[in-house]
C-alpha cells in the first residue's frame, strides 16, 4: 500500500509541475507588456520601468521566471494582478463562495444521484428506469449555461427564487445555482450507478444471498450497494475537483462572487496574472482530489494496488 501511495504522489508531483509549466508558458507566450498593463494610462519614467522589471524578474529567462512563480505559489504568495491588487486577497475572499457552492452541488449529486441510480437499476426496463434514462440524456446534452440561463430566467420572471446571489448571504440563495452546477454530474452519476447496480444484481453472490433467504432490501442495500459504489465513488471524487473549476459559468449566471466569477472578470479585463493564478489553483485542487480518490480506491479495492 505504501509503495502504491508513493508512486501516485510522485506521479502527481510530476503532473503538477507539468501542468503549471504548461499554463504558465501559455500565458507567458501570449501576454503583451505587463508593465504597460500595470501602469495603465500614466506614462512611466525609464527608472520606474527598470525598477518594476527588476521587481517582477521580467529580465530573466522563462524558466527562471517560472521558478520565481512556483516559489511564490508554494509559499502562498500569489503576487499582484495588473491593477495592483493582491491576488491572494482576491482568492481568499472568493474561495468560501465557490467552496460552499461546490459542496452543496456535491451533496446534491451524491444523494440524488446514487438514490435515483439505485432505484432505476433495481427496476431495469420499468417506467421509472426509462424516464430516468431519457431525462439524464437530455440533461447531458443541454450545456450547463443553457440550463442555468433558463432557470435564472424562470426564477426572475415569476419571482420563485433569488437569481442574484451577491448581497444575499444565506445558503438558501445558493440552492438553485448548486442544482445547475451539479446537473451534469448528477445525470452521469445516475447512469453510472444504474449500470453498476444492474451488473451487480446478476452476480453470483446475489444469487447466493437470495438462496440463503435474505430479504430483497438487505441484498440491494448491503451486498449490491457496497460493490456497485466503487466506480461511482471514483467518478464523484474527480467530480468535486471539476465542480469547482466548472463553477465559472454558474457563478457568472447567478452573480456568485466566487473563484469562477473572479476568473470571468479577469478574462474580460484581460488580467493575465489573475487568470493564470486562479487556473493553477484550480488545477492543484483537481490534482489533489484525484490523488485522494486514487488512494481511497486502492484502500477499497485491493486489486488496484498490485497493478
Amino acid at each position: 500500500m505504501a509503495r502504491y501511495i508513493v508512486r501516485r504522489v510522485l506521479q502527481m508531483v510530476l503532473a503538477f509541475f507539468g501542468t503549471t509549466l504548461l499554463v504558465y508558458w501559455l500565458m507567458f507566450a501570449a501576454s503583451g507588456d505587463p508593465i504597460a498593463a500595470l501602469a495603465g494610462e500614466r506614462p512611466l519614467s525609464e527608472s520606474t520601468r527598470a525598477a518594476l522589471i527588476q521587481e517582477f524578474h521580467l529580465d530573466q529567462p522563462f524558466l527562471v521566471q517560472y521558478a520565481y512563480y512556483m516559489k511564490g505559489l508554494l509559499t502562498l504568495d500569489l503576487g499582484v494582478n495588473t491593477s495592483g491588487r493582491e491576488i491572494g486577497e482576491l482568492v481568499a475572499s472568493a474561495w468560501p463562495w465557490t467552496l460552499r457552492l461546490a459542496l452543496l452541488a456535491f451533496v446534491f449529486v451524491v444523494v440524488a444521484g446514487i438514490a435515483l441510480g439505485v432505484i432505476a437499476g433495481t427496476r431495469r426496463g420499468g417506467a421509472f428506469d426509462n424516464t430516468t434514462l431519457v431525462l439524464t440524456l437530455v440533461v447531458i446534452s443541454i450545456p450547463v449555461f443553457v440550463i442555468g440561463q433558463v432557470l435564472a430566467l424562470v426564477g426572475a420572471r415569476y419571482d420563485l427564487f433569488p437569481t442574484n446571489v451577491v448581497g444575499d448571504d444565506s445558503l438558501a440563495a445558493l440552492i438553485v445555482p448548486a442544482l445547475v452546477l451539479g446537473s451534469l454530474s448528477l445525470a452521469t452519476t445516475v447512469r453510472l450507478a444504474r449500470t453498476s447496480v444492474t451488473e451487480n444484481l446478476r452476480a453470483d453472490y446475489v444469487r447466493t444471498a437470495r438462496a440463503k433467504g435474505l430479504i430483497h432490501r438487505r441484498i440491494v442495500g448491503v451486498h449490491v450497494l457496497r460493490n456497485s459504489l466503487i466506480p461511482v465513488i471514483t467518478f464523484l471524487g474527480v467530480e468535486l475537483g471539476s465542480l469547482m473549476g466548472g463553477a465559472i459559468v454558474t457563478e457568472k449566471i447567478f452573480n456568485v462572487p466566487g473563484i469562477g466569477f473572479q476568473l470571468y472578470k479577469a478574462i474580460s479585463i484581460e488580467d493575465g496574472p489573475t487568470v493564470v493564478t486562479i487556473v493553477s489553483l484550480l488545477v492543484i485542487v483537481y490534482l489533489v482530489m484525484n490523488l485522494i480518490v486514487d488512494v481511497l480506491y486502492g484502500v477499497l479495492d485491493p486489486r488496484i494496488r498490485y497493478e
Partner: peptide, 11 residues
C-alpha cells in the same frame, strides 16, 4: 497525465 490534469474548460 499532465494534459489530463488541466480541465478542458479552464485550459
Amino acid at each position: 497525465d499532465i494534459v489530463l490534469g488541466i480541465p478542458l474548460l479552464l485550459g
